[in-house]
Write a protein that binds this DNA or RNA. Structure first.
Lengths: 284, 284
DNA sequence: AATTTCTGTTGTTATATTACGACAAACATG
DNA sequence: CATGTTTGTCGTAATATAACAACAGAAATT
């Protein structure tokens, strides 16, 4: 865990003097890491060894080591002790918080990723006759993005954000087809039906969803992740970002598997797109 | 700039002994930050003051200060010196790289954000009679996401990913309407036309795009950002993520501006959505 | 209830470690 | 050979920590 958060969280566990040290550090972590143990002790109005003991209590080797850990946690963001948006946050404040919580969410998602599953998914995708991306509601935009990416690969790819079309498409699917389902909760009934339907028709079903969800047990290959989502108050967002990144990871794996000649043709697609744009001023 | 990268980049600028120090640090930065100046000097087979001079050359106050900077840059990720995906990366490796570069991109985007513009955009959005989100190609999925978010706010909102529909919609727009255009480059000709068209019909035009782009000068309020995008080889991805986060920031600003009673009704929308899901096992 | 004992907290002193400045030797360069 | 740069040696000041002592408050004993 982040050292600064640890200090914050252990506040109650500390003794009187140690709490003084913690408060000084929390008040201005940037000052703390640039101070010597003597100046910090003076700021907190305690003795130097107290500061040292404080450091030890947080599982560090001593004061210098503690400074190192603290420096790292400062670099990692979290200048705000809380990342949750509050009622009376300023635009500057909530902007920062949302960006930071997004980054933190991506980090936890990364740590919970199973790269073996990623690899298998790439396997399946490269061998697909046809790829379909399905998502509902908020996940639909991820499906669209995926379609956009894989379309450039010159692979037969479709995308539906509508239950009926998804069902119809599944009924017509066959061996060699790959269906990618995107759902954060993995509990949307109609998507679970679709997973079953697709499998019954011989298609391989990849699901980008959460671990242990009903959907993950209903598909051929679950690509799962753990994302801290504060859905109580705000809209699901972190999961969307993580899904997008996973789609990008799959797309990247796809291009790597296909080899260099394939990537040449990708560049040509890009060249064509440039024509619809206003050229950048060459002076810039 | 990241300290570790700085060491890497300045390798040629160093003198013989200083380079020895740099190499030892690059070989194992984790060891370096946990060593004293004496042990590091011994490892590099140079004298202690040489190590100190090395630190000074990198604009730090001395060895301890250098360690702090180095620790921060290590915390920021970059265990890989490069975040770019290489030809022969393992799935684990490219997954990590893509996640990390995404996070780094969000960080730079955040730093380049103009929160005053965010605030103005929220102003405009809260007063809108009707909100339209337009994006083309890859940005279309962001527009969809935005529609999804604002739809829950019970605001008249539409979204088109098709040039003709966008034009038609603009022609029918009037005073009080708000058009939000999403384009990373801000150079897509047809979107620039649409910005002009919308303004001619009295609509306010917000553009989520890059600074100094043609689009940003053609709209009422540009919400710009700087995102490092490696479009040469891979697909635009970082910009998409940043756009999504900005949409989320705008949506959050919107709900905050609307006050607590508004958020109550949001919860009701969520309750309704739950009915389409399989309930979570209460034991879990 | 008063005293003792124990446990944990805090400060003082002493020492070892660490980093840095000043100077001098070695080295390269014209 | 002269000049400027690089590098190392030495001494000193700052820094962190170990060991010990004083103290406070709680628990136990009388």
């Amino acid at each position: 865990m982040n050292t600064l958060e640890k200090v914050q969280k252990s506040l109650t566990h500390f003794s009187k003097s140690e709490r003084k040290v913690a408060e000084v550090i929390l008040a201005s972590p940037q000052t703390a890491i640039h101070s010597s143990i003597a100046t910090l002790a003076k700021m907190a109005d305690v003795s130097e060894p107290t500061v040292n003991r404080f450091c030890r209590r947080l599982d560090t080797k001593g004061f210098p080591d503690f400074k190192l850990h603290l420096a790292q946690s400062l670099a990692n963001g979290t200048p705000y002790v809380s990342r949750h948006v509050e009622e009376d946050d300023s635009p500057d404040s909530y902007t920062t918080k949302i960006f930071e919580s997004s980054m933190a969410a991506l980090d936890t998602a990364r740590q919970s990723m199973d790269t073996a599953a990623i690899n298998k998914a790439v396997d399946i995708l490269t061998q697909a006759k046809k790829i379909s991306f399905f998502g509902l509601g908020a996940s639909a935009s991820v499906a669209h993005d995926a379609q956009n990416k894989f379309f450039r690969f010159n692979v037969p790819v479709i995308c539906f954000d509508d239950v009926l079309m998804q069902r119809m498409s599944c009924i017509n699917s066959s061996e060699g087809d790959v269906v990618v389902l995107i759902s954060h909760t993995g509990r949307t009934k109609s998507l679970i039906d679709i997973a079953r339907l697709a499998r019954e028709n011989g298609a391989a079903v990849i699901a980008i969803t959460s671990r242990n969800s009903p959907l993950s047990s209903e598909c051929t290959l679950p690509v799962t992740m753990e994302v801290p989502e504060d859905t109580d108050m705000y809209l699901p967002m972190a999961s969307r970002l993580a899904q997008l990144v996973i789609v990008d990871v799959l797309a990247t794996g796809f291009t790597l598997r296909r080899g260099p000649r394939f990537r040449e043709s990708l560049k040509r697609v890009k060249e064509v797109l440039k024509e619809s744009r206003i050229e950048k001023d060459p002076i810039l």
